[in-house]
Design a binder for these strands. Structure first.
Length: 256
DNA sequence: ATGTCACTCAACGAGTGA
């Protein structure tokens, strides 16, 4: 099974790029983030024409996530809310396929730090940790993918000094990621490329892409059951070089 | 050279978020 995670930074602005990419790569499941629409501009019809059902958790102009499942694959919608119902920010979709919980997240950015937004990020991640530790304790097979807005380690950014004090790189935030790893979840990308300087995001500003001044903040974490079935995990940098690109690129996960 | 982009609201630019 081929899965992808991609922060598209507006599905309306990125529609053609995303449709073209889906058509050529044909993932079975796609996690999209930062749709920036409540559904009015979500291309349900075009995506269905490519052979996908969309589970959209959207909101107007901000955040928003969608999980696309190829038609013919049986799935169950588990939830579109992490915190409580109804949720004020659309950042979560959970489905189950073949006994595996599949969680699509767009974690809060949290900048500036400190601020109310940073506190919200901490509260949001506390809820996520609670959910995932329950799954680990119960040995529920799961994977979680998306824009974590966490730079896990120094090697996950071009210039660690430039990110000091940023809400993506405080010790407090990196500790959240480390706790998830220490509890037994596996960072799928690092299984195959343990020291590579590969990024998933390059800022639009200051020629960040041309200078390869990027960060790795889009991840797939796997429970032990899913780790045993891991075949591959790669970052596709190609879409970042297109005209009018997203500032993030897709991460591709393959599991048996 | 903080060198960008996409959104909303009520306009034809300012403010916000990333």
């Amino acid at each position: 099974m081929k899965m992808i995670s991609w922060n598209v930074n507006s599905i309306k602005a990125r529609k053609e790029i995303v449709l073209d990419w889906l058509e050529s790569h044909k993932p079975d499941v796609a996690f999209l983030q930062e749709l920036k629409t409540d559904g009015e501009h979500y291309p349900f019809d075009e995506i269905e024409a490519l052979g996908y059902v969309s589970e959209v958790n959207g909101q107007k102009g901000y955040a928003g996530v969608a999980t696309l499942v190829k038609k013919g694959i049986e799935y169950t919608l588990i939830s579109k809310a992490l915190l409580e119902e109804p949720e004020e920010q659309a950042r979560f979709v959970e489905v189950e396929i073949d006994g595996i919980r599949m969680i699509n997240i767009y974690a809060p950015n949290g900048n500036p730090q400190p601020s109310e937004k940073y506190d919200y990020k901490l509260r949001w991640y506390q809820k996520l940790e609670d959910k995932l530790s329950t799954y680990m304790r119960n040995e529920t097979p799961f994977l979680i993918g998306g824009d974590f807005n966490i730079i896990p380690e120094n090697k996950d950014c071009y210039d660690p000094n430039a990110w000091q004090g940023d809400a993506l790189f405080t010790k407090e935030i990196r500790d959240i990621y480390r706790r998830m790893i220490n509890s037994g979840m596996v960072d799928a990308f690092r299984v195959f490329d343990s020291n590579a300087l590969n990024y998933t995001f390059w800022d639009y500003q200051a020629g960040a892409w041309q200078r390869n001044n990027g960060i790795r903040i889009d991840h797939f974490l796997l429970s032990p059951y899913v780790t045993d079935r891991l075949k591959g995990c790669v970052i596709d940098k190609e879409p970042r070089a297109l005209d009018k690109p997203s500032d993030h690129v897709p991460v591709i996960l393959e599991i048996n």
